[in-house]
Simulated scan of single mutants.
Amino acid sequence: MDPESRLAECSDLYAAFSVIAEKNPYSWNGRARTATDIGTPSPKNRIVCEPYPLSMNAMPFVDQAACIVLTSLAEARERGVPESDIVYVWGGAGAEDSVDILARNSFGRSAAMEHALDRAMNAAEIGVEQLDVLDVYSCFPIVPSLATRHLQTPTSLIPTVTGGHSSFGGPLSSHSLHSITASVREIRGGKKCALVHANGGYLTYHHSVLLSGDQHPLGYVSDPEPAVLQSDPPHRVPVEDGDLVVETVSVEHSRQQEPNQAFLVALDEHGRRVAAQTAPGDTASAHALSLYRSDPAREIIGSTVTVDIIEGNIRVRSS
């Protein structure tokens, strides 16, 4: 998918999120927005780090809290909780990827996320068609995009029940509590099964939980202990002058809306992985690695760039 198509996909997704946030009385910004408004860079919607404008970033400066009461079934009934209000935890699963992102196999998927989602679903013996509530951690569009791509969810199943980090609010570590409480309200309102995904770090720590208004036939069906995944990444070496094939890149923009500094992970001519950055203020090099060039449809990922090393930074000679 080329950068323009990917931006349009993210804009549509977060526009759908904002519609859900508008219906959520607990949202910090309950205003539905159009995909054009969300995806078009402007002084009020500036690019912070590519590829996302400000409206696709999490908003942590919010005053939000959530509380969950978890009891045994016997305790809930003894306390007089109506049967229609009881929500069952079917189970969950966790997985951890390498803390060092350069030690991961790929930047186009999250093996730990896939593992956490698959273990929970497989243990419950259900498929995605049995989910009618899905909430995926949404600090940036990449997280729900990776999850829905892996699960192959229908477009009608929007992967948020809160409205997402950028519209509902991103109160750091408590966001997934809000997702669970919102899912509980949905189930009490008649929905059958909810899958909630939580993320920590740089797509490092993942956990998923399944909730339902009915007991699972097998009771609690999961092992919540996180699996620690192993990887076999390309050998890593210091960057040298020459040609590099771009694995992934992000470009930080200045408040004047210009590419200011690029951060690059690439493969050298021997297939070894290198990580490098351009010097702050080297706008020419940052622009050469930016999605927002004269030809925005041109894919930078997988392209070859020629670099020189200058005082520990790279300068892009050609791309």
Rank of each mutant, 00 (worst) to 15 (best):
S254R: 00
A194C: 05
M1V: 10
V161T: 12
E83Y: 06
R119T: 13
V265R: 12
P171F: 09
L13I: 03
E75M: 12
P234H: 12
M113D: 02
Q130L: 10
A276P: 00
V245I: 03
V87L: 04
S55H: 05
W28N: 13
S145H: 14
A16M: 09
L289G: 04
S138R: 03
T248V: 02
D135E: 14
T148C: 13
T304A: 09
T304S: 10
E269I: 11
S42F: 05
S176E: 14
Q215C: 01
L218C: 10
E96W: 07
D118N: 11
C10D: 15
S303N: 02
F140S: 14
G39R: 04
E22Y: 07
D132K: 05
L195S: 06
N45H: 04
P296F: 11
V265G: 00
Y202S: 15
S84C: 02
E240V: 08
L211C: 00
F61Q: 15
A15D: 01
L172S: 15
R255L: 10
A111D: 05
R188L: 02
D12Y: 07
V316C: 01
Q130K: 11
E311C: 02
A275Y: 11
G200N: 10
M113Y: 02
A66P: 06
Q130N: 15
L146Q: 12
I158N: 08
T36D: 15
G213H: 08
P141N: 14
Y220V: 10
E22K: 14
G94R: 05
E96L: 08
S179D: 05
D243N: 08
R109A: 15
G302M: 02
A76H: 04
L264M: 02
I158R: 11
T283Y: 11
P3T: 06
H253F: 12
S138H: 04
P217F: 13
T40G: 02
L291P: 01
S145W: 14
D85T: 00
V81T: 07
S285E: 03
S290F: 01
D85Y: 05
L146Y: 10
V19Y: 10
A124D: 04
A74I: 07
C139F: 10
E125K: 07
G108R: 13
G108W: 10
E247G: 00
Q64F: 03
V316E: 08
G200Q: 09
T181W: 09
S222N: 02
N199I: 13
P53L: 11
V246K: 05
R315D: 04
T181D: 08
T36P: 00
V251Q: 01
A262I: 00
P224M: 02
S98D: 03
A35I: 00
P53W: 01
L13K: 03
L54G: 06
H115P: 03
V136Y: 06
P171V: 09
I301A: 07
L157V: 05
L244F: 07
S98G: 01
Y137E: 13
G169V: 07
A116V: 01
S55T: 10
